[in-house]
Structure formats: C-alpha cells, structure tokens
C-alpha cells in the first residue's frame, strides 16, 4: 500500500500580484510505506510547499485536479485533514526555535495534549519520545528547554513530534547547522525512528551527502517539477543530472571522480564516504605486496589531502592514512 499518493498537484503563491510565483507544477508522487524518501532541490524549488501539503498546512489550490492522500486520508476533506495533522509528523527547519514551554516534558507533551490523549498516555509517550531521541528522561524532563545546548534543543523538538507517533515523518533539513558528530547521530536517530515509530520518512535537504547515506529513494525538484526520481545511486551517481538540478555532487562522488580521472579503477557509482572508504581499503589490500603500489596509495592520500581543504566533512581524509599504515 502506498503511504503517500499525490496527483497533479500545482500551487501558485500570491496569485494575481507582481509577486506571483508558481511553486508546484503538476506534481505526481507515490511513496510506498516503509520508504525513506529524500527530497532534494535548490532553494525555491518547491520542496517546502510540497511537504506542507502532506499534513494540510497548505490547502490544495485546485481541488478539481490535484489530490493528496496520505494513508487513506484525503487532504481535501476537512475532517480528514484534521486527522492528517497527527498522521504526518512534521519537523521544520531549525525546530529548536519553536520550543516555548518552561520544561522539556511540557514542551514534548504539547502535541499529545492537542490530540486529547489521557494523562497517563501523554506521560508514557513523552517518556518514550525523549528516550528515543537519546535524552535521559530523569535528567531532562524538568529542565528548561532554553538552557539546553543546540543539539539537545533539536532533539527535544524532534521528540515533540515523535510523541504524537505519526505514521509518516517529514524532516525539513534535519541536520542543518549541526557539527559532524551531531549530524551522524541525528542520521542514526532517523533510522531508529523509522524502525520504532514512523515507517515512512521524508527527508528534505540540499545536502546530498546526508541524503545519500539514509534514503532508499530520492526525488529531485526543480522549479516546482519533479525532474528526477530514483535510488540515491542513480541520482547522485549522475554528475550532469545533479548539476543541472542546481545542486552539488556529494563529496565522496567528487573524490571518486578525481581518482578515476587519475587512472584508479573504483567500483561504479560511489556516493557516500563509507563506500569510498571500503573501496579504497579493498583496493589497497588487493595491491598488497607489490612494492611500487605503496606509492600509488601515497598519491591517493595526497589527493585526498587536497580535498580536505575544500570540504571539512571528508571522512576518508582522516581515516585513510591510518589504514594505509595497517595494510601496507
């Protein structure tokens, strides 16, 4: 069964004024339950408009043509739209700026309270949501959300949405502004949430690297239209396509391309750092024992050294020298 079914969806902002802008143009999209869908696109490509249709925050403009159905709930019907709010959990960009209660527990309870659940159920859900996002209930429940660190605040905000136990979870730029460790942790968290709470997850991002590592499927938006749809490998492995959408190629793909240009054979379509690391390690092992190969490996590392200056998040640069020491 598909969790999300969108047909012929169009949307125009400020219709009939000089500020008029077409945000979506005849978008068709069907997402199977259990998918982690990456939504990519440059700023102003219509990503936000698209996801806000999912829980009825934005009403469908042309109901005769366009339709949005999530888990059987029709967004064009008033009653069903109200239920949609809780069916689709939406974590907006920088959610830490939306905290408002005086304690963490109260803030997380805001959603469940609006669902009119019993007090026991609310407490249970708050406890579970906080533990899920990796915050110890006893340690955090009574603290003020404004006293927490940036990463902790974001977890509290995400817990606030998780506590509603939505079947579909939408995250808008979930790792924006986090340091590399925070990013990794949050991406791991997404995997955990998908297993335990929300089987279907949509991640909106313009950072290819994040999406490459977690998504099963990726759609790319440009000027309000879906211009590409496929696995992360199909999309991010196609340099011309990624650049035509107005996005950056993932760093791992860039490194792989540079290595290939210099005659080093790698498996096709490497898009994330872990894969690149494995491929390089395998390559080095294969060449073990051949004396002059050590120089190639050194050359490889030197090149990755160049990359480091361009991109700090290049994990391979930090790890490969050590591995080289072990292998050669």
């Amino acid at each position: 069964m598909s969790a999300i079914e969108i047909k012929d969806l169009s949307f125009i902002y400020s219709k009939g004024t000089p500020y008029q802008k077409q945000a979506l143009k005849d978008v068709d999209l069907s997402v199977e339950e259990g998918t982690v869908l990456g939504v990519v696109g440059a700023t102003g490509s219509g990503k936000s408009t698209l996801i806000q249709h999912l829980n009825g925050l934005i009403r469908i403009q042309d109901k005769k043509r366009g339709s949005v159905v999530v888990n059987g709930l029709d967004a064009s019907k008033r009653k069903e739209r109200a239920r949609l709010r809780f069916e689709v959990g939406m974590v907006f960009q920088y959610p830490e700026y939306q905290l408002f209660e005086d304690t963490v527990a109260k803030d997380v309870a805001f959603g469940p309270k609006n669902m009119k659940l019993s007090k026991e159920e609310i407490d249970l859900r708050v406890r579970r949501a906080l533990e899920l996002v990796g915050l110890n209930y006893e340690g955090f429940a009574e603290r003020s959300p404004f006293d927490l660190s940036g990463g902790e605040k974001r977890r509290v905000a995400i817990a606030g949405v998780i506590a509603m136990q939505p079947k579909v979870l939408v995250l808008d730029e979930p790792v924006a502004g986090l340091d590399p460790v925070g990013r990794r942790e949050l991406l791991d968290l997404i995997g955990r949430l998908r297993r335990e709470v929300s089987p279907t997850v949509l991640i909106v991002s313009h950072n290819m690297d994040d999406i490459a590592s977690v998504a099963d499927r990726v759609i790319a938006l440009k000027d309000g239209e879906i211009v590409a749809d496929g696995t992360p490998k199909q999309i991010f492995g196609d340099r011309a396509l990624v650049e035509s959408i107005g996005l950056e190629v993932p760093p791992a793909k860039r490194v792989a391309d540079m290595l290939e240009e210099r005659g080093i054979q790698l498996p096709p379509q490497i898009i994330d750092m872990d894969e690149l690391e494995e491929a390089l390690a395998a390559l080095l092992k294969q060449k073990e024992g051949i004396a002059d190969e050590a120089q190639t490996a050194e050359a490889t590392c030197a090149e990755e050294g160049d990359m480091r200056s361009q991109d700090d998040s290049c994990a391979v640069c930090r790890k490969t020298p050590d591995e080289e020491g072990e292998d050669v």
Binding site: N55, L57, F92
Partner: peptide
C-alpha cells in the same frame, strides 16, 4: 505552521486552547 503541525488550534477549539496556541 510548526505549532499547527503539532495540533495547535488557532481557529477552532475552546478559548483556552486558542490562547494556548497563541502562546506557543
């Protein structure tokens, strides 16, 4: 939008619920 997504009632529900929504 963010608080609506968490079920805040700005244009429906009791007066108390609406005030709560505005506070959020």
């Amino acid at each position: 939008a963010a608080q609506k997504a968490r079920g805040a009632a700005f244009d429906s529900g009791s007066l108390f619920a609406r005030i709560r929504a505005m506070v959020s």
